[in-house]
Design a protein around this nucleic acid. Structure first.
Lengths: 213, 213
DNA sequence: CGTGATATTGACAAGTCTCAACCTGTGTGG
DNA sequence: CCACACAGGTTGAGACTTGTCAATATCACG
């Protein structure tokens, strides 16, 4: 893809001394673990293709999906020297990685990641609003709209997440998510073709539910 | 309004190469609004001194404090071309601003902001875990530990937020926050000297409650 | 046609919110 | 210097949303 090409050309001979290529592409199947919360944070990663979710765990096993990532999004971050989140693929995915040192050496890379971080930080701000202040029904409506590209209006939306994963993303239980889906269906806002295929019928009402943000 | 008392430009010119002063320092009193969600996003801002909170609103008035910022933290971000959050000072504060264009021109600045964004993104990940998966008591414990610098062990912690602001940060109501404070006091984990002065007695139990993150 | 994983639905419990009353401390004016 | 007023905080009772546990349904696959 375009990004792969840019990466390769952008990275050549920045540091000829280092024999190790600081860019590597990796291909993952769906439901693969890319990295573990708590492991030493060596590299910064970027989704090239596919979908990835970042999760955090509490000692007692409660889980939160903190971010959903698509092409261009960055992960593998660390507040100290270990990864702050685990990362799992939701679909088959291609991921590229950068040495942490490359951020200082390569201003082009830094500029691109900076823009990306800004977008992701804004997404997290929205997510905080969802988690802190929205009802179950509103959360699910928000989730469905978030997955719907602007362009797609009539077509059907494929969820590559189980109810449990959606629940962990929205701070709910899988039962509550299921009930919310049923309620949206009952109200005629969506149609459930299959458990993982949704068609949004009333975009306006969905927007209103989701806070029109 | 009482916000802008004084504005200086480029006082410490650390980048002599650039003749244009793209840095401005501003001094704010406590409880001043620095910027409004939805306004055109012209500049990126950085906290130099003091504390700032970022908030988002739903159409019906529900509010979420999405981030608490201290010295070094960055705000004024936008997913499209308008600010994603409002920003208010919690204490008197000094804030510096950068033109958005400066990010591309000044690699040193970009590198610094990049590191900061990473830290803030990690903080948001933790916050998502708090909002999505923790009980009221756990949230308040987490909040108090988050405000406690590692160094400070015995001294008393000053909250520069009302119960309502804390509640909006933690996704609770002010009553629930108040009850959580009382419960922590009852259990002997903290002492409330005044409504806005807390002393943490049992750091270990607090850590356990907060998920030892 | 079973079998296992995932999803839905129901009944009940628990945690948090809502509404209301009351308390505390700070500052002001008589 | 005291009394009062006001903003913020605490506490209580009951309602409501969501969580928990359990039974049943649906779908993909061998």
């Amino acid at each position: 893809m375009r990004q792969i090409i840019e990466e390769r050309t952008g990275s050549h001979s920045r540091h000829p001394a280092s024999s190790e290529p600081h860019i590597a592409h990796m291909r993952f199947t769906a439901h693969a673990t890319v990295l573990h919360e708590g492991d030493p944070a060596r590299r910064i990663m970027e989704v090239v293709e596919g979908a990835v979710m970042l999760t955090k765990l509490l000692p007692d096993g409660r889980r939160q999906v903190v971010e959903l990532l698509g092409p261009g999004d960055v992960f593998g971050l660390a507040a100290c020297d270990v990864y702050a989140c685990s990362a799992e693929t939701l679909t088959a995915a291609i991921i590229t990685t950068h040495e942490r040192g490359a951020l200082d050496r390569d201003p082009t890379l830094a500029a691109r990641l900076l823009r990306r971080f800004e977008a992701q930080l804004c997404a997290m701000h929205s997510h905080a609003l969802v988690l802190g202040r929205m009802s179950a029904l509103e959360r699910v409506a928000f989730f469905l709209l978030r997955l719907t590209p602007e362009s797609v209006v009539g077509s059907t939306l494929h969820l590559s997440m189980t109810r449990q994963e959606i629940a962990d993303f929205l701070g709910l239980t899988l039962e509550t998510v299921s009930r919310a889906f049923s309620e949206l269906k009952r109200r005629g806002l969506v149609a459930l073709l299959r458990a993982d295929e949704v068609k949004i019928h009333d975009h306006g009402s969905m927007r209103r539910l989701a806070g029109a943000a």
